[in-house]
Design a protein around this nucleic acid. Sequence first.
DNA 1: GCAAAAGTGTTAGAGGTACACCCATGA
DNA 2: TCATGGGTGTACCTCTAACACTTTTGC
Lengths: 248, 248
Amino acid sequence: MTEHDALADYDPNAFPPAAVSVDVALFTLRGGRLSVLLVRRGVAPYEGAWALPGGFVLPHEDLPAAAARELAEETGVGRFAGHLEQLASYGAPDRDPRMRVVSVAHVAVAPGLPPARAAGDAADARYWPVEDLAVDAPDDDRPVLAFDHATILRDAHERVRSKLEYTPLAAAFCDEPFTIADLRRVYDAVWGTRLDPANFQRKVLGTPGFVEPTEDHAGSGPAGGRPARLYRRGSATLLHPAMLRRVP
Amino acid sequence: MTEHDALADYDPNAFPPAAVSVDVALFTLRGGRLSVLLVRRGVAPYEGAWALPGGFVLPHEDLPAAAARELAEETGVGRFAGHLEQLASYGAPDRDPRMRVVSVAHVAVAPGLPPARAAGDAADARYWPVEDLAVDAPDDDRPVLAFDHATILRDAHERVRSKLEYTPLAAAFCDEPFTIADLRRVYDAVWGTRLDPANFQRKVLGTPGFVEPTEDHAGSGPAGGRPARLYRRGSATLLHPAMLRRVP
DNA sequence: GCAAAAGTGTTAGAGGTACACCCATGA
DNA sequence: TCATGGGTGTACCTCTAACACTTTTGC
């Protein structure tokens, strides 16, 4: 039986009720740490738990449009301008205790954003450092995540980690223009590494289309130092050669 | 607003009707060519067009279970035993002319299978070489694909191409036990390459967990030749180092 | 013996790591 | 002039492509 043949004798009122939603894991760098936007639920179920921002897909709305709309609502920005891509769909029959909900999860990346503000039924909204959410985080204040959002967040985190290797995604964390060191701090934050600045510099500049140089230089930091050249995002969508992550 | 808050005041009878389906791109090697299973539609819309096998997700069914069930129905096998993974979801509002359908597409890979048989409302079912389906295929007999299945198939093809690089997916195309040359023919068919047998041999055997040797040897081919050692799939899920595809 | 396919050896080059070293700025 | 961070030079290592060559079979 093909996907749509069953529709031929389908009675809309008898169709198993399923809802389609989008959830978004929005990553950014705050204070040098990889962080993700979460909202605290104000209603049951999982009242008081933290969740990825998301919501139902409107009748005539495309999936990426729904994700961008939810993000814009949550971040208070007029239009979400960062990187947005689909991650995967989560459809375990019991993932929502009330009804069948299939969620199309997305990953978003943006440079430093204004503090999140709670909206709608959310009791609170804030950025959480992802390492404070990991299962091995020692903090007893570690938030409880609603539904299967811990799974989604883990998958989203892994997607970002691996996409830094072979795409210029790291640049989506940086406001333009940015320095090579800004870019390196993204890799260090996401991978938990301390990449060699010298080799990193050569690798980035030796990868065509990763960054485009400008004529400007950044001011040197509070402790002095040579001013760094400023760059913009390049046109490449894939990195050749890749920024290989060390296998420990 | 979070994903589920809208449910608090949700009236099931008023909810925008959306259906969730699964579609599966099942790849296999037939006659040395990468091929995909398609079924010909026997009912409107797109009657007579070819489509990926698929169908609606049942009320208490997980997404991978739905995909495996559809595959088993289409291939006539009791239980689908090959590789199966989620690809992405496709939810453009107008992708189905009758109602809102969000399809969770999957990619499947299996060794040589029995000829497909039409079932349910399908008028026909067969394996198509993927190069005969490409947009630049010169053949006027190139089948018309229903819905957005040409897009799904293109994405699925690209997924398989890239997963050969860093996972042992190629072994899922081979009946066990298999030779290194069998594995190489998978790469050549999927990538359209002519990999060097000598270097390929070393790379596969030098990648821990890709294949496990057996004590047996295959009979030599019709034109003679030294009998090749036989192998089984290894335990690795990721290849280190990867089988790098040449960038032309 | 000859063709064919499996499998090994060898060399040259590309790309990565580590680390020494120079450059430009603030205090 | 010292500390700091940006940026370059260089030696060494690993991995790979290319291809010559050996091994083992069928005819």
